[in-house]
């Protein structure tokens, strides 16, 4: 799946003449922006939800009533109990149990943790690759630029599913019969990281092209700073704004992609499910009336994605002064 241009293409920073030395990142803390955040109730709500999810993910082992990742604590005999308000429920399981007898609520907490971790690391990796390549391409120009952009073209033709399959295959071939549980997590992060870097690269390259011709870069070059230093100290801070926006929205996308990969059979092992794996498993119980097995992870995922995207929207508008 190449979901690259999902995000509006206009987040490259526009030069408004003023404030060049201060990066957009610095302006994030501007009271103006905080004001715009508080001005919209929906944005506040989205922020609150995201924060709550982060807390849950962080402290899942402490707040979850059960440990769904410990097979010794999961009893098949409890399988498919409905939520507590329905007939035939078990008071131990607030939101019921899944097909293996795992407590849904605990599975959601842990699943959220896994999903956010994979999404977060995946996004971090793709941003790292993309920003680095984008900076180099934009700053160096010429053949190096052309080469990197051609690599980006090639990457776009590989659907994420195939990347995941290939990474999975290569990792297993290299590790020689390593168990799925040990490697699946890394495979997912790597697959997502390798699937989503192009957008960062293109955006950062565009910004770098603009920044490179500015006076301060010329000045830095004149006083003898070397290219890596210029890139790191001067160009990078100025292109971080758009990167942050893409990262926010890609986090949501990464979580969804992980779910899709799980549907295609290359996701995380069912013994340590992410939200996506939970949906994939629950998907089989949609027609049978055991709706809670898919509904709760589905709703959690949808709420997470919408909240994170709204934060991303707000961030983009806030960082683009012309839209304010």
């Amino acid at each position: 799946m190449t979901a690259e241009p999902l995000i509006d293409t206009d987040i490259t920073p526009r030069t408004d003449g003023t404030d060049e030395r201060r990066g957009r990142f610095a302006r994030l803390l501007d009271s103006d922006i905080m004001a715009s955040f508080l001005a919209s109730k929906l944005t506040v709500l989205a922020g609150f939800v995201t924060f709550a999810f982060l807390i849950i993910a962080l402290f899942a082992p402490l707040i979850a009533p059960f440990n769904p990742f410990d097979p010794a604590q999961v009893f098949l005999i409890d399988a498919r109990d409905p939520p507590i308000w329905m007939a035939g429920s078990d008071p131990r399981f607030l939101l019921g149990t899944d097909d293996q007898g795992r407590d849904m609520l605990s599975a959601l907490f842990y699943g959220l943790r896994v999903s956010l971790l994979i999404g977060g690391l995946g996004v971090l990796l793709s941003a790292l690759i993309g920003v680095t390549l984008g900076l180099i391409a934009g700053y160096a120009g010429g053949r190096i630029d052309a080469l990197i952009m051609r690599i980006a073209d090639i990457q776009l033709t590989f659907p994420a599913i195939l990347i995941a399959l290939l990474v999975d295959g290569v990792v297993h071939a290299l590790l020689k019969s390593g168990g799925r549980e040990d490697t699946a997590f890394g495979v997912m992060v790597l697959s997502i990281g390798l699937s989503f870097w192009v957008q960062y690269a293109r955006t950062v390259r565009g910004s770098t092209l603009v920044e490179r011709n500015k006076d301060y870069v010329h000045a830095a070059r004149l006083i003898g700073l070397r290219s890596p230093q210029i890139l790191w100290r001067h160009v990078l801070p100025n292109v971080l704004g758009p990167v942050l926006v893409i990262a926010t929205i890609n986090l949501a996308l990464a979580v969804i992609t992980e779910a899709t990969l799980s549907f295609l059979g290359v996701g995380l092992p069912p013994t340590q499910p992410s939200l996506g794996t939970l949906i994939r498993i629950g998907n089989a119980y949609l027609f049978s009336g055991e709706w809670w097995i898919v509904a709760f992870p589905g709703i959690t995922l949808a709420v997470l994605v919408i909240a994170v995207n709204m934060l991303g929207d707000w961030l983009r508008d806030a960082l683009n002064p012309r839209l304010r």
Binding site: D70, P71, A72, V74, F75, L76, D99, Q100, G101, P270, T271
Partner: peptide, 11 residues
């Protein structure tokens, strides 16, 4: 699902 159940029982 059978394998998953086996994992739990052996655990």
């Amino acid at each position: 699902a059978i394998c998953q159940a086996v994992v739990g029982m052996l655990a």
